[in-house]
Computed example of a mutant assay.
Amino acid sequence: MNRPLFVSLDGPKGTGKTTLLEAVTKSLRADNQKVIRLCEKKSDPYRSATMALVNKLVRNPGRDLEWEVCERLADSRAWISQHVLTQQPSDSIILIDRWYPSDAAFRRIVPFAEILQLNIDRNVQVPDLHVGVVTNPDTSWARAAARKRGLSSTVIHKLEEQIACTQAFEQAIADHGWVMCLNEGPIEEAVMQIVSQIYRVLNMQDFTS
Protein backbone atom coordinates (compact mmCIF):
# COMPACT_ATOMS: atom_id res chain seq x y z
CA MET A 1 0.00 0.00 0.00
CA ASN A 2 1.16 3.52 -0.65
CA ARG A 3 -1.22 4.83 2.04
CA PRO A 4 -2.91 3.30 5.08
CA LEU A 5 -6.00 1.19 4.58
CA PHE A 6 -8.79 3.00 6.41
CA VAL A 7 -11.57 0.84 7.91
CA SER A 8 -14.47 2.17 9.95
CA LEU A 9 -16.65 0.05 12.24
CA ASP A 10 -20.00 1.59 13.03
CA GLY A 11 -23.31 0.49 14.45
CA PRO A 12 -25.91 0.95 17.16
CA LYS A 13 -24.99 0.75 20.82
CA GLY A 14 -24.53 -2.68 22.38
CA THR A 15 -23.66 -4.57 19.20
CA GLY A 16 -20.24 -5.62 20.52
CA LYS A 17 -18.37 -3.33 18.18
CA THR A 18 -15.52 -2.38 20.51
CA THR A 19 -14.92 -5.99 21.57
CA LEU A 20 -14.95 -6.96 17.89
CA LEU A 21 -12.41 -4.23 17.11
CA GLU A 22 -10.07 -5.63 19.72
CA ALA A 23 -10.40 -9.16 18.32
CA VAL A 24 -9.90 -8.02 14.71
CA THR A 25 -6.80 -6.10 15.76
CA LYS A 26 -5.39 -9.18 17.48
CA SER A 27 -6.09 -11.37 14.43
CA LEU A 28 -4.46 -8.95 11.99
CA ARG A 29 -1.40 -8.46 14.17
CA ALA A 30 -1.02 -12.23 14.40
CA ASP A 31 -0.62 -12.06 10.60
CA ASN A 32 2.16 -9.47 11.08
CA GLN A 33 -0.02 -6.60 9.90
CA LYS A 34 0.66 -3.14 11.29
CA VAL A 35 -2.63 -2.07 12.87
CA ILE A 36 -3.48 1.38 14.24
CA ARG A 37 -6.62 1.52 16.38
CA LEU A 38 -8.35 4.88 16.66
CA CYS A 39 -11.55 6.09 18.24
CA GLU A 40 -13.43 9.02 16.76
CA LYS A 41 -14.60 10.20 20.16
CA LYS A 42 -11.11 10.13 21.69
CA SER A 43 -9.50 11.77 18.64
CA ASP A 44 -12.00 14.65 18.49
CA PRO A 45 -10.66 17.84 20.14
CA TYR A 46 -14.14 19.41 20.09
CA ARG A 47 -16.12 16.48 21.53
CA SER A 48 -17.15 18.07 24.83
CA ALA A 49 -18.70 21.10 23.11
CA THR A 50 -20.46 18.87 20.58
CA MET A 51 -21.89 16.62 23.29
CA ALA A 52 -23.22 19.67 25.12
CA LEU A 53 -25.10 20.47 21.92
CA VAL A 54 -26.33 16.86 21.66
CA ASN A 55 -27.68 17.09 25.22
CA LYS A 56 -29.50 20.27 24.25
CA LEU A 57 -30.92 18.48 21.21
CA VAL A 58 -32.25 15.66 23.39
CA ARG A 59 -34.16 18.19 25.48
CA ASN A 60 -35.34 20.27 22.51
CA PRO A 61 -35.44 18.18 19.30
CA GLY A 62 -35.40 20.15 16.06
CA ARG A 63 -33.91 20.04 12.59
CA ASP A 64 -31.81 23.19 12.93
CA LEU A 65 -30.18 21.97 16.13
CA GLU A 66 -29.59 18.46 14.77
CA TRP A 67 -28.05 19.95 11.62
CA GLU A 68 -25.70 21.96 13.82
CA VAL A 69 -24.68 18.72 15.57
CA CYS A 70 -24.05 17.13 12.16
CA GLU A 71 -21.92 20.09 11.10
CA ARG A 72 -19.83 19.97 14.26
CA LEU A 73 -19.23 16.23 13.89
CA ALA A 74 -18.29 16.65 10.23
CA ASP A 75 -15.86 19.44 11.12
CA SER A 76 -14.30 17.22 13.77
CA ARG A 77 -13.91 14.36 11.28
CA ALA A 78 -12.31 16.76 8.81
CA TRP A 79 -9.84 17.74 11.54
CA ILE A 80 -9.11 14.07 12.32
CA SER A 81 -8.71 13.37 8.60
CA GLN A 82 -6.13 16.14 8.26
CA HIS A 83 -4.27 15.92 11.56
CA VAL A 84 -4.54 12.29 12.67
CA LEU A 85 -5.11 10.00 9.71
CA THR A 86 -2.37 11.61 7.64
CA GLN A 87 0.17 10.93 10.41
CA GLN A 88 -0.22 7.14 10.35
CA PRO A 89 2.33 4.85 8.64
CA SER A 90 1.58 4.23 4.98
CA ASP A 91 1.86 0.46 5.42
CA SER A 92 -0.66 0.29 8.26
CA ILE A 93 -4.30 -0.67 8.60
CA ILE A 94 -6.29 1.96 10.47
CA LEU A 95 -9.32 0.65 12.36
CA ILE A 96 -11.53 3.42 13.68
CA ASP A 97 -14.30 3.04 16.23
CA ARG A 98 -17.12 5.09 14.65
CA TRP A 99 -17.11 7.49 11.72
CA TYR A 100 -19.82 9.23 9.72
CA PRO A 101 -21.82 6.02 9.00
CA SER A 102 -22.83 6.04 12.68
CA ASP A 103 -24.91 9.14 12.01
CA ALA A 104 -27.30 6.87 10.10
CA ALA A 105 -28.11 5.23 13.43
CA PHE A 106 -28.21 8.17 15.83
CA ARG A 107 -29.54 11.18 13.91
CA ARG A 108 -33.31 11.04 13.85
CA ILE A 109 -34.37 14.15 11.89
CA VAL A 110 -31.81 15.01 9.18
CA PRO A 111 -31.78 12.39 6.38
CA PHE A 112 -28.53 10.47 6.16
CA ALA A 113 -28.10 11.41 2.48
CA GLU A 114 -27.70 15.03 3.57
CA ILE A 115 -25.30 14.07 6.35
CA LEU A 116 -23.19 12.03 3.95
CA GLN A 117 -22.97 14.94 1.50
CA LEU A 118 -22.05 17.27 4.36
CA ASN A 119 -19.11 15.05 5.31
CA ILE A 120 -17.99 14.80 1.68
CA ASP A 121 -18.18 18.58 1.31
CA ARG A 122 -16.03 18.95 4.45
CA ASN A 123 -13.37 16.66 2.88
CA VAL A 124 -13.82 13.98 5.53
CA GLN A 125 -11.74 10.90 4.70
CA VAL A 126 -13.85 8.21 3.04
CA PRO A 127 -13.11 4.74 4.47
CA ASP A 128 -11.75 2.10 2.13
CA LEU A 129 -14.08 -0.30 3.91
CA HIS A 130 -17.27 0.51 5.80
CA VAL A 131 -18.30 -2.22 8.25
CA GLY A 132 -21.72 -2.00 9.85
CA VAL A 133 -21.91 -4.10 13.02
CA VAL A 134 -25.47 -5.06 13.91
CA THR A 135 -27.47 -7.42 16.08
CA ASN A 136 -31.13 -7.94 16.72
CA PRO A 137 -32.10 -4.88 18.82
CA ASP A 138 -33.37 -7.13 21.61
CA THR A 139 -29.90 -8.68 21.73
CA SER A 140 -28.03 -5.37 21.81
CA TRP A 141 -30.44 -4.02 24.41
CA ALA A 142 -29.90 -7.06 26.65
CA ARG A 143 -26.12 -6.84 26.20
CA ALA A 144 -26.17 -3.19 27.19
CA ALA A 145 -28.32 -3.90 30.24
CA ALA A 146 -25.76 -6.47 31.40
CA ARG A 147 -22.90 -3.97 31.27
CA LYS A 148 -21.94 -1.98 34.35
CA ARG A 149 -22.15 1.23 32.31
CA GLY A 150 -25.45 0.20 30.68
CA LEU A 151 -26.25 1.44 27.19
CA SER A 152 -24.17 4.57 27.80
CA SER A 153 -26.10 6.54 25.20
CA THR A 154 -27.14 10.16 25.23
CA VAL A 155 -29.85 9.73 22.61
CA ILE A 156 -31.18 6.16 23.13
CA HIS A 157 -33.17 5.47 26.30
CA LYS A 158 -35.92 3.01 25.32
CA LEU A 159 -36.04 -0.34 23.52
CA GLU A 160 -38.31 1.23 20.90
CA GLU A 161 -35.60 3.80 20.16
CA GLN A 162 -32.99 1.04 19.91
CA ILE A 163 -35.22 -0.78 17.40
CA ALA A 164 -35.63 2.37 15.30
CA CYS A 165 -31.89 3.06 15.52
CA THR A 166 -31.07 -0.46 14.30
CA GLN A 167 -33.60 -0.40 11.47
CA ALA A 168 -32.33 2.97 10.22
CA PHE A 169 -28.75 1.75 10.28
CA GLU A 170 -29.56 -1.49 8.46
CA GLN A 171 -31.35 0.52 5.77
CA ALA A 172 -28.25 2.71 5.33
CA ILE A 173 -26.09 -0.42 4.98
CA ALA A 174 -28.35 -1.65 2.19
CA ASP A 175 -28.56 1.77 0.50
CA HIS A 176 -24.81 2.38 0.44
CA GLY A 177 -23.41 -1.12 -0.02
CA TRP A 178 -21.52 -1.26 3.26
CA VAL A 179 -20.41 -4.60 4.64
CA MET A 180 -22.86 -5.89 7.22
CA CYS A 181 -21.43 -7.90 10.10
CA LEU A 182 -24.10 -9.71 12.10
CA ASN A 183 -22.44 -10.09 15.49
CA GLU A 184 -24.75 -12.55 17.21
CA GLY A 185 -22.81 -15.83 17.05
CA PRO A 186 -19.28 -16.74 18.15
CA ILE A 187 -17.02 -13.71 17.90
CA GLU A 188 -14.58 -15.77 15.80
CA GLU A 189 -17.15 -15.85 12.98
CA ALA A 190 -17.54 -12.07 12.97
CA VAL A 191 -13.77 -11.58 13.13
CA MET A 192 -13.25 -13.92 10.19
CA GLN A 193 -15.83 -12.05 8.14
CA ILE A 194 -14.24 -8.65 8.76
CA VAL A 195 -10.65 -9.83 8.33
CA SER A 196 -11.53 -11.51 5.04
CA GLN A 197 -13.11 -8.27 3.80
CA ILE A 198 -10.01 -6.31 4.82
CA TYR A 199 -7.77 -8.68 2.87
CA ARG A 200 -10.13 -8.48 -0.09
CA VAL A 201 -9.72 -4.70 -0.20
CA LEU A 202 -5.95 -4.98 0.33
CA ASN A 203 -5.68 -7.40 -2.59
CA MET A 204 -7.72 -5.07 -4.79
CA GLN A 205 -5.40 -2.18 -3.91
CA ASP A 206 -2.34 -4.28 -4.71
CA PHE A 207 -3.88 -5.26 -8.05
CA THR A 208 -4.67 -1.67 -9.05
CA SER A 209 -1.48 -0.05 -7.75
Results as ranks from 00 to 15, higher is better:
G16V: 03
G16T: 00
G16K: 02
L21C: 11
E22P: 01
A23K: 10
A23L: 13
A23Q: 12
A23Y: 14
V24K: 01
T25H: 12
K26E: 15
K26Y: 05
S27A: 15
L28I: 11
L28N: 11
R29L: 12
A30Q: 14
D31G: 04
Q33G: 01
K34I: 08
K34N: 11
L38Q: 01
E40N: 05
K41A: 11
K42A: 11
D44N: 15
D44M: 08
Y46D: 13
Y46T: 12
R47S: 00
R47L: 14
S48C: 07
A49Q: 10
V54W: 10
N55S: 08
N55M: 13
K56Q: 13
R59E: 14
N60P: 03
N60T: 00
G62T: 06
R63C: 09
L65N: 01
L65A: 08
E66V: 06
E66L: 07
W67G: 02
W67T: 03
V69K: 14
C70R: 10
C70D: 13
E71L: 13
E71N: 04
E71V: 10
R72T: 06
L73C: 07
S76F: 03
R77L: 08
I80K: 05
S81K: 03
S81Y: 11
Q82I: 10
Q82M: 02
H83A: 05
V84Y: 14
V84Q: 10
T86H: 09
Q88I: 03
Q88F: 06
P89L: 06
S90E: 14
D91N: 12
D91E: 04
I93E: 12
L95I: 02
L95C: 07
I96C: 00
D97E: 13
R98A: 08
W99P: 01
Y100S: 01
S102M: 12
A105R: 01
F106G: 07
F106I: 09
F106E: 15
R108M: 09
R108Q: 12
I109T: 10
V110P: 05
V110D: 08
F112Y: 15
F112R: 02
A113T: 04
I115V: 14
N119H: 01
D121R: 13
R122L: 00
N123D: 15
P127M: 09
P127I: 04
D128I: 00
D128C: 00
V131A: 10
G132Y: 03
V134S: 14
D138G: 04
D138T: 05
D138V: 04
T139C: 01
S140W: 09
R143L: 09
R143Y: 01
A144G: 15
A145I: 05
A146K: 13
R147M: 11
K148H: 05
R149K: 13
R149I: 05
R149T: 08
G150E: 01
S153I: 06
S153M: 09
S153H: 08
